[in-house]
């Protein structure tokens, strides 16, 4: 059975969160890794190519970073954030990008179903969560996005570099003031934690993909590289580069 590494970092700093994902992406010797994490303080992350001026609410979040993955901005609060880093030839990522999204989203939808959320690919349907002018990921949808209640509930983006793939995912438990009228996994705000949903994602992924996930920590080299790379994500020259 294939073995993956599981790294959980709850409440980590935005610089470390982004730096570690980039460090894992750049470590071609690393095993396939699932990260489960959350943010402290709450953080607004811009997509790699987004214009800073096109995103509303940058003053609201506790911190602002620019991701190396594409797509729209995400307010990382009240959500489970995950990343999966693997070689581009891995069975999860091989072939067209759209196929890799379908595989990842199949796992995420199955995990949400364990908590009574019936998430589906958007397909051709129109969503009430789509907005024209906020710059937020959850207010812009594509046919491959996971939706329920007629709204988008999972944000996803990838970076492909040197034969490796980083897939970012954000599963909303609660909405934020920057992400109104989106689908959330725990509308009551009291039934589901990031850690609980993360645990479900872990077991569901293992079951569907037939992999064993072994809890581990980043290596000393990865941790050092994460801190080295992390500072760039808060640098105004990078955050406001477009």
């Amino acid at each position: 059975m294939e073995t993956w590494r599981l790294i959980t970092t709850w409440g980590a700093s935005p610089a470390f969160n982004m730096g570690l994902d980039e460090a894992l992406l750049g470590n071609s010797q690393a095993p396939t890794t699932l990260r489960l994490y959350s943010w402290s303080p709450d953080t607004l992350s811009l997509g790699y190519f987004q214009r800073f001026a096109d995103v509303r609410g940058t003053e609201v979040a506790g911190s602002v970073v620019r991701r190396i993955t594409g797509g729209g901005a995400i307010h990382h609060t009240g959500e489970l954030t995950f990343s999966i880093v693997a070689d581009a030839g891995h069975r999860l990522y091989a072939g067209p990008i759209s196929a890799s999204y379908r595989r990842v989203h199949h796992v995420v939808a199955a995990a949400l179903a364990e908590h009574g959320v019936q998430a589906e690919l958007r397909g051709a349907r129109a969503l009430t969560s789509d907005r024209e002018d906020t710059g937020m990921c959850f207010h812009h949808s594509t046919e491959l996005d996971l939706v329920w209640d007629g709204r988008k509930g999972v944000g996803s983006a990838q970076r492909r570099k040197s034969g490796r793939v980083l897939h970012h995912g954000s599963i909303k438990l609660h909405s934020s003031e920057l992400e109104g009228d989106i689908a959330v996994a725990d509308p009551s705000g009291s039934q589901l934690s990031e850690q609980q949903l993360g645990g479900t994602l872990r077991t569901t992924l293992g079951r569907i993909l037939g992999v064993r996930l072994e809890s581990d920590a980043p290596t000393a080299e990865e941790r050092a590289r994460a801190h080295e790379l992390g500072s760039r994500y808060l640098d105004p020259a990078f955050v406001r580069r477009r």
Partner: peptide, 16 residues
């Protein structure tokens, strides 16, 4: 070496 970057819907990829 990477000389550029291209973004499609959902993914940013290097150009080498």
């Amino acid at each position: 070496e990477t000389f550029g970057e291209i973004e499609s819907v959902k993914a940013v990829s290097d150009l080498n």
